[in-house]
Design a protein around this nucleic acid. Sequence first.
RNA 1: GGGGGAUUAGCUCAGCUGGCUAGAGCGCUUCCAUGGCAUGGAAGAGGUCAUCGGUUCGAAUCCGAUAUUCUCCA
Length: 868
Amino acid sequence: MDCNTIRRKFLEFFESKGHKIVPSAPLVLKNDPTLLFTNSGMVQFKDNFLGHSKPIYNRVADTQKCLRVSGKHNDLEDVGLDTYHHTMFEMLGNWSFGDYFKKEAIAWAWELLTEVYQLPKDRLYVTVFGGDKNDHLPTDADAESLWKQHIATDRILYGSKKDNFWEMGEQGPCGPCSEIHIDLRPEAEVKNQPGKELVNNDHPQVVEIWNLVFMEFNRKADGSLEKLPAQHVDTGMGFERLCMAIQQKTSNYDTDVFRPLIDFISLHADLYRYGTDAKKDIAVRVMADHIRAVAFAIADGQLPSNTGAGYVIRRILRRAVRYGFSYLHFKEPFMHRLVPLLALQLKDVFPELHQQEEYVARVVHEEEISFLRTLEKGLRLIENYDKTISGVQAFELYDTFGFPFDLTSLIAREKNGTVDEKGFHEEMAKQKSRSKADAVKETGDWILTGEDKKTEFIGYDHLESEIKIVKYRKIKHKNKELFQLVFDKTPFYAESGGQVGDTGVIESVNEKINITDTKKENELIVHFTEKLPESLSSVFIARVDQPKRELTKNNHSATHLLHAALRQVLGKHVEQKGSLVNEKNLRFDFSHFAALTPEEIARVERIVNQKIRENILLTEQRHVPIEQAKAMGAMALFGEKYGEFVRMITFDPKFSVELCGGTHVAATGHIGLFKMISESSVAAGVRRIEAVTAEGAQEFVNESLALLTEVKSLLKNPKDTAASLQNMIEEKQTLEKKLDTLYQQQSNVLKDSLALKAVKKKDYTLILDKVTVPNAEALKNIAYALRNQFDDLLLVLAADVEGKPQVAVMIGEKLAATNQFHAGNLVKELAKEIDGGGGGQPFFATAGGKNLSGLDAVLTKAALLISQ
RNA sequence: GGGGGAUUAGCUCAGCUGGCUAGAGCGCUUCCAUGGCAUGGAAGAGGUCAUCGGUUCGAAUCCGAUAUUCUCCA
């Protein structure tokens, strides 16, 4: 059975059991402070379990793109070393939200595995939760007795809290779980040792394939458990592992999920045959695995970067490049060539990659080039190191120059040297604790003050409303206390879609509290404040900062017009890749492969301003079925999670139709004026435009004009300002050069006159004089020029340099070789006469001071010192 | 968000603990040699040492700030 059939059969099976098949959520999460990536199938339903929103369907199934790079069972650095860990994988799952529970979940799981997939019953084991004293929980007897209807009693095993009690995090919904394991070893081995002894023992051939979680509790911040009002089922089955079991392979990488990638990599690694060299195999697996994670993350809108989720993507890609570089001799960018293959392979399941294939490959390619450059630089640095490399050095290479530690040790070994690994890890630990100390954050439990229900957002129509506080909690960060409030309804817009959150106040009869920000946690609208209201149960008037909201609206609507204009001018490949809209300006990132020409910029700006003058009325539709919206030409963004119903914002159905939750002007005329401030690049294939509107644009134009007026007036209002300035700059350069030559000539004259005064002594030619020179540079020049003239020169010049005393001592080449005089020592002695200090090299030294009248004394003293 | 680096000629970079008049390779200009050249030789042009401020007799070098950029950690 090929992998596509396996996936299809899973979905068909649950569809036949009354489940709604939903699409995978994006890999990258936007509104969840606790998580960077979707790491399991249940993430997109988190709000349903937490009770923040009601599910639309109570039975759902899907295949979900997941990414795991750290956690109790997974670490990025382990992936590829063995044959079963992955960064990105698909998780098949079925869910019940307060609908069916353990009985159906267990029966269907068994039916699917043994009847649809025909997995051998005598190789399956199941585990149930064996209870936990600390949590005062008994064995999961329900699951136990249900399993007994399907499977022999001796194939049921009992697991501890660690293996059989599933928790979302330190807080939140949780419950006992029941896992299905399969023994894939050859017959002989099975006879030797029963599979049940190997379950949950990290054996690569005796593995868990399906986890059925029965969510019935909520874990509170103090660690105690509370029964949930409704019970849910959450299951997850690793797709790649399931394929291995059904296709009777010994590794996930041997299935047809990975094989095409592996073959392509091997082909281009000098026709390497996979399976013939353990180290090279690891490299091949790393590359095959990592390209999936990287490509899908980029397709979902996450570019590699140096912070947050983007940094994780960068690390994954770099790890793959590193392995290819070290073990398969890929010295040129290669990973990007895997993108088309992967896109084609998953075209029907995850079309987002196929649709953005060129863009994704380009980003990967650019990132590869940049890392190979980093490697090259590191290699050059490491050449200058001793063959024993200290931990501090290795860490500096890694931390400052991004040079991977394993490459450092590889190179050290090649030179028969060593690296202090312990020292390296110590340095790393220091770095980590520095960062952690900065990031500590304590989050308290939500405390209910009213009936817990979903907040109604009324901010599209109202900027002011009576509200009640539903719940609140305390956040501690860097010794600062913050409170988060949730209302029954709110006019405050929570940051999303690039638009900043509203600020404002809530006010009761007795008090007035500032709301400093509004954010979303998944679907929950959270208001931030520094002060907790005293009477939490009062009725408050919530009031949004209106001027700020108005200015923000201008910028948001302008962003839509800009997006549409860009597509008109540049082409349909322009897709939004990021957006920031606040009261001051707007920033819009989009896919496009070249810098905009001044003409393109002008055209885009002209179109946007024309649309503003047309004063197009806003058409806002709040509840359109997603399919209908798409049919009407609305652009859905990659990496954005849309519900069944969407909000549509239209400014002229022929011009701009977008799915958007933000706030907008009633008619485009409100925007007033649109002015682009800058156009730049953020990453390969992504451009950024910054612009201002309304008052901001007016201010910008006024300031620019004022500056120009000032410049013009300084130049005495020339006909052509730019040319006049250009002239002036050129003129200045010529003058500087002329002045230079003039000084040079002066110095020459002075030098010649000094040369005439030279007195020939027995061992040397003495020049001792007082001079006036324009700058220190000239003094130096004269000294060097005289040195070229007399190889037995002994020169002492007491100079007046722009009113400051300076002394120069120069000793000719031949004389210097005799070590008879030391310019540095001499000048130090002489400097005393001018209340200064100095030094230099044995043959040339200078000194400066404060006492100009001491110059004569310098010469007298010099004569004395020399004659000694 | 918190660290660590880097910024020197058109490009890639040297320049050790402050002091040889800031260098190399490539590229550029001119000239010479060969029938031709990704050729050889010679000469030459090109630098506010990112910006601003400080320490010092003296700063590319030390200190601080800003900008740009690379990199690690969260």
